[in-house]
């Protein structure tokens, strides 16, 4: 029998319940501005909790959050774990590569076992694009699925923590020019950032990269393309450097790292093209001297560590909102069957 909660469809349809509330968080695409703003507002309130002696709220007491990482991650996994713990959830960390799947158990079996353990949310990172969507729509629709990065497709919590950082430093998006610099081709972060910035109404979104590191049709996402750093940075209010994803490069896309740094590296000199009060961001981990100069990464305009702090607040917001959406649906079903 097909579970009525399963909804084959676009990520946007799968993510929202009938009442328009979040039940999974898989992709920025298709989510309305009001919902993104609600995530940012909720995260802002969680930032307040981080100032208390006890940095915890009891919202997810008795709930279980399973971190399912099919791909390596340090920062994302650590901040998701901390976020779930600060919501008082019990956290299960599964490094799938080294566990059951290595013994031959299928993904479906693993997930169904976890569902039988009554997990309330799965945080999923996977190297295949669409993995989180597949799980949410086909496998365990009644468990809140949070996408922690899938292939080259999306990394929506990273994009939202970037949006929170921008909003806290620059306020209203409608006047902002945002430049995303570097390896756009391999970046799920860039795609989610462009979608989020456009939904939130940023004045201008730019991508700056050599042709070989730009996806075909990137303009269709809603951004201006620049291949010269001086032009791409001119007057920008926010500059986001991306990591050069050497591990994903299977062809000769670049002559050399030093060549890339010379033309696209964010240095004190190149930053002078941007607005004098521009902030500098980087999703981490940083390749110093490859995409960004140390003096910029550690400099007064860098908000990179602030991004990490905001990451916990955004992940608390998304986890609590998605579990809340599932809770409301369950309560509604219970009332209907009474």
């Amino acid at each position: 029998m097909i579970d009525p909660a399963s909804r084959p469809g676009t990520p946007a349809q799968v993510q929202l319940g009938d009442d328009g509330r979040l039940r999974h968080f898989i992709d920025i695409e298709g989510l309305p501005k009001a919902l993104l703003t609600e995530i940012l507002d909720t995260a802002d309130s969680f930032r307040g909790v981080q100032e208390a002696q006890v940095k915890k709220v009891p919202l997810l007491r008795g709930k279980t959050v399973a971190n399912l990482f099919f791909e390596n991650s340090t920062r994302t996994r650590a901040t998701f774990e901390l976020a779930a713990k600060r919501l008082s959830a019990d956290v299960l960390n599964l490094d799938i590569k080294t566990s059951s799947t290595a013994k031959g158990e299928t993904l479906l079996d693993t997930l169904q076992n976890l569902e039988a353990m009554q997990a309330d949310a799965f945080v999923v990172r996977h190297s295949d694009s669409g993995a989180a969507h597949f799980i949410a729509s086909q496998v365990t629709p009644r468990v809140a699925i949070i996408n922690a990065g899938d292939g080259r497709h999306a990394h929506p919590t990273q994009a939202m923590l970037d949006m929170l950082t921008i909003r806290r430093h620059k306020g209203d998006f409608s006047r902002l020019r945002v430049a995303i610099v570097g390896d756009i081709l391999h970046s799920r972060v860039a795609r989610s950032q462009i979608l989020a910035l456009n939904t939130l109404g940023a004045a201008e979104v730019r991508v700056v990269a050599p042709r070989t590191l730009l996806p075909v049709d990137v303009e269709a996402l809603g951004c201006r393309v620049f291949t010269r750093l001086s032009e791409g940075l001119a007057g920008a209010d926010v500059v986001i450097a991306l990591r050069l994803q050497k591990e994903r490069m299977d062809g000769a896309l670049l002559p050399s790292e030093s060549e890339f740094y010379r033309h696209y590296g964010l240095t004190r000199d190149s930053l002078a093209w941007a607005h004098p009060e521009a902030i500098v961001m980087h999703p981490g981990p940083i390749n110093r001297g490859v995409e960004i100069e140390s003096a910029v990464a550690d400099g007064p305009r860098s908000v990179i560590l602030d991004q990490v702090t905001n990451g916990i607040a955004v992940r608390m917001a998304v986890l609590s909102m998605a579990v809340s959406g599932q809770t409301r649906e369950r309560e509604q079903r219970r009332q209907e069957t009474q």
């Binding site: 969680f46 307040g48 909790v49 709220v57 609590s320 309560e331």
Partner: peptide, 23 residues
């Protein structure tokens, strides 16, 4: 204080809307 994150009815009502940071 905004007690939205400390309410005891999350399992029935979910997250209330418009929670502000306590100060």
């Amino acid at each position: 204080l905004d007690i939205g994150f400390w309410r005891d009815d999350f399992d029935h009502q979910g997250l209330p809307e418009g929670i502000r940071a306590s100060d």
